[in-house]
Design a protein around this nucleic acid. Structure first.
Lengths: 229, 229
DNA sequence: CAACAGATATATCGCCCGCATGTTACGTCA
DNA sequence: TGACGTAACATGCGGGCGATATATCTGTTG
């Protein structure tokens, strides 16, 4: 139940850049988000700041601040003097989240098609090719990696810090559901091709095309989400 | 629904006090947001937690947490050992914000038209009438009040906690710009009527109509924003 | 004997405040 | 004038204290 096998404070050693000015709050946030998204902390579980602080080997303050950030994203909610509850994943909530994600992602796609630099367009073209290859080879891990890369490129090329922030918040909740169910019902090939369609539309600067492609992708994701019951 | 904090608009207790379980962090957040939105704290100004804590008569912790929430909304940003900077308002940033707001608000309007209860529809009808009256009388303060009420009803009837959270974040930055410039170039009558159109479409359950009315309203807001230069 | 109401115990957060550390500004000296 | 040391001040963080919600125990009653 507790997370006693935490690797300690130093170096999450992920693929991410080891930013030198990483505060403990940031680290705690990253670790907790990862644990929640990957279901190592299960929905419905109640945690305490003190326990988490001990497990992570840091003080209560950074843990508390990280938890508040997670609460603002909806991954946990704090019960005033009882503890923090890892929020449940239920289908209807997930569909509500997708309602919002559809709008924001379409905006990002449209704006990315308008605003991407030449380099970024090259990147989207390459991404589309890679996605097509992954679709042919049915490479799970490769797709997950490309999906992450795609989302990052999308918000980057969209050039809208507010949409970026909103997307970042949405991602966490989305990723958790994804992580939980993708093995069961994901049509990897179709999903990868739909991603590639968006990427290609952006690459050629077709804003309307990118928007409709994004909607098509979201249609599939909604379908995928519904299929998990 | 999550922690439903009704944001009283002004600092001291208004006529409404559902429960005094407001934490100091909540109070600090409300007060600081109000001060920033109303430009009592000017953009570019650097603040310190300790100073604010002393001014508000509370400890540093609630102030710190409130500032982090404000930072997540983009109203301030913290300079790592230097202080907190009240973020600047510039036109291009505001336009980017409106890009996102257009999408989220259209979503809320559409969903509100689909999901509002009979009581809520009555509320929107009444709101539309009040807005029309305000448009005739050119009642500034009345409009501001109705606008707040309208936005709250909109996200409430939209029945989407995630869109609600996103809108709440957007409101702060939007309201500040509004507060700063509405005296100069606001066409109150037109703006009130556009609001009323959205409200009426929601009241009659016309989702597409609500969406296009919302877009028309946002078109005007963009025009208003551009006119401030 | 079972069920229940009240008293007590325990766990948890909300908050305060002190210390450590990093950044900036400024006075001082060559 | 310029470089440098130092002081002032900022946040990052740790940990303690008190209030309070919940669970546990106890005594009472039908």
């Amino acid at each position: 139940m507790s997370v006693s096998d935490s690797t300690g404070i130093t170096a999450p050693q992920t693929h991410k850049r080891p930013k030198d000015s990483d505060t403990l709050t940031d680290r705690a946030y990253q670790q907790l988000e990862e644990m929640i998204v990957t279901l190592r902390l299960e929905p419905g579980q109640v945690l305490s700041e003190a326990q988490l602080a001990e497990d992570l080997g840091i003080g209560r303050t950074p843990v508390r601040e990280a938890l508040q950030r997670l609460a603002s994203e909806g991954l946990v909610n704090v019960l005033p003097r009882r503890g923090v509850l890892v929020s449940e994943i239920n289908l209807s909530r997930q569909l509500l989240l997708l309602e919002l994600r559809r709008e924001v992602e379409r905006l990002c796609a449209r704006k990315a098609a308008q605003r991407a630099t030449a380099d970024e367009r090259d990147g989207f073209r390459a991404l589309a090719d890679d996605l097509a290859a992954v679709a042919d080879n049915r490479d799970d891990a490769g797709f997950m990696r490309l999906d992450l890369q795609f989302n990052r490129a999308l918000v980057q090329a969209g050039r809208n810090e507010f949409a970026e922030r909103a997307m970042r918040r949405i991602q966490g909740l989305s990723r958790r559901f994804w992580f939980q169910h993708y093995r069961e019902v994901l049509d990897l090939e179709r999903c990868a091709r739909l991603h590639a369609d968006v990427a290609r539309a952006i690459a050629r600067g077709d804003a309307d095309g990118a928007a409709t492609a994004s909607d098509a992708l979201m249609d599939y994701i909604v379908e995928f989400t519904r299929a998990t019951v």
